[in-house]
Amino acid sequence: MRQFEAPPSGKWTGPNHAGVKAPEPIVLADPATRFAATAKRLAKLADGHPMEAWLRFMAALAEAQHAVATTLAPASSLNTASVAQAVNARLPPLAADGHERDPSWREGLASLLDHIERSELPPAARDAIEQLRRSDAAALDKLADQFLRGGLSAADAAAAVYVAAALQVYFTCSAARLKADDLRLLEERSLCPCCGSPSVDGLITATGVTPGTRFLFCSLCSTAWNHVRAVCITCGGTRRLSLHGIEGDIGVIKAETCGDCHTYAKLIYQVQDTQVDPYADDLASLGLDILVTEAGYARHAPNPLLLVGDDEAVAS
Rank of each mutant, 00 (worst) to 15 (best):
D310H: 08
Q131Y: 01
A280Q: 02
S174Y: 11
T274D: 15
A18E: 08
L78E: 11
L28M: 06
F217E: 01
D127P: 00
F35Y: 05
P15I: 07
E120G: 11
L243A: 11
P50L: 08
H66V: 03
N226D: 10
S9V: 05
R2F: 12
F217N: 01
P198H: 09
A139P: 11
D114S: 09
V271Y: 07
E120N: 13
L121V: 13
G296R: 05
H300W: 02
V209H: 02
G196T: 02
K21W: 08
L61F: 06
A43Y: 01
L178W: 01
V20P: 00
R90A: 13
A280R: 06
A138I: 09
I204F: 05
E187A: 11
A29T: 07
L55P: 01
L78N: 04
T263C: 08
M58I: 08
A29K: 06
H227Y: 06
L132K: 10
S285L: 10
L243T: 03
Q146E: 12
P50S: 05
S104W: 00
T207F: 07
A81S: 08
A75E: 01
P211G: 11
A110M: 08
K11A: 03
A159V: 04
S153W: 01
V209W: 03
R229N: 09
T210N: 14
A284Q: 03
C218N: 01
L291E: 11
S135W: 02
H244P: 03
W54L: 06
S82G: 13
S242F: 14
L291H: 14
E130W: 04
S119V: 09
P8N: 03
K142H: 07
C195M: 03
A39Q: 10
G202Q: 14
N88D: 13
I26A: 06
L286Q: 11
P50M: 12
V276K: 07
N303C: 13
C195Q: 05
A89P: 14
L121G: 12
L283P: 05
E63H: 04
R133W: 08
A176P: 00
T274E: 14
V252T: 15
P50Y: 15
T172D: 13
K21N: 09
E247D: 15
N88F: 02
V271L: 12
L186D: 06
Y269N: 12
V308G: 05
H262M: 04
H115G: 02
L243I: 07
T71C: 00
C192V: 03
S76H: 07
L267D: 06
G212D: 06
I268H: 11
L152T: 12
S197A: 15
Y264T: 08
A158W: 00
P15W: 05
H244S: 14
E188M: 10
A159Y: 00
D201W: 08
E247V: 12
L152Q: 02
S76V: 14
L152N: 11
E312G: 10
S76R: 09
G251C: 12
L183A: 06
A62E: 11
L28F: 05
L288T: 01
R90D: 14
A159Q: 02
A139D: 06
D289A: 03
A86D: 09
P74S: 05
